[in-house]
Amino acid sequence: MSFWNWEWVGTHLDLIGEKLGEHLWLTLLAVGFGLVVSFPLAILAHRRARTYPAITWVTGLLYTIPSLALFALLVPFTGLSTLTAEIGLVSYTLLILIRNAVTGLGGTPEDVKEAARAMGYSERGVLWRVELPLALPVIVAGIRIATVTTIGLVTVTALIGKGGLGALMLGGFRRLYPQIAILVGVALSVALAVAADRVLLWAQRALTPWARRTRSVTAT
């Protein structure tokens, strides 16, 4: 049997589709929870600058710990479960999401904020109506990096029995599937990352029409 076993691919489209779906679901869950956790922390760090070093220290430590090690540290407690996978995946999104949100929120020019206050915006109004919309491009840039990174990391969760497309790769290596499954897994994973990046970029452009004509270099 040659490597190019298209027949297997053709007859196992539903398996491939299922893994792709699982991959997408694990990614959405991780980035979604990542946003839920990081947003209040970013607001806190923005409002109380003294909390920022502590927040980046903790999230930076989580970011540095290799993913397989983090999953392995959790397995004795949460088992080979989606929960284990998600705790690890969410942890990795936090540093990127928080750093970009804080950079974005802090990027509003002083004069714009002063003008807003002088027109009678409350502090809450300045945050929600001025700082947050202006920070959107940088925040979305963070979501893009977090999403693409997560799509790559999801593959590793194959080692704890999840993995989405990573399960195709590991299965192909362990001869559970033909070897072409490795290539299918990698190709679909790259395609998913590129597609997610494009969709988010499009969403960001749609949400921030004012930034369309000015090319901005965003902190990542």
Binding site: P109, D111, V112, K113, E114, A115, A116, R117, A118, M119, G120, Y121, S122, V130, P133, L134, T208, W210, A211
Partner: peptide, 21 residues
């Protein structure tokens, strides 16, 4: 907030909101 809404305010750098027309 009420006080400021009753006063127009113009500064050198204007501080127009870049995300609004």
């Amino acid at each position: 907030v009420r006080l400021r809404r009753g006063m127009g305010y113009v500064i050198q750098s204007i501080g127009l909101m870049p995300h609004r027309t």
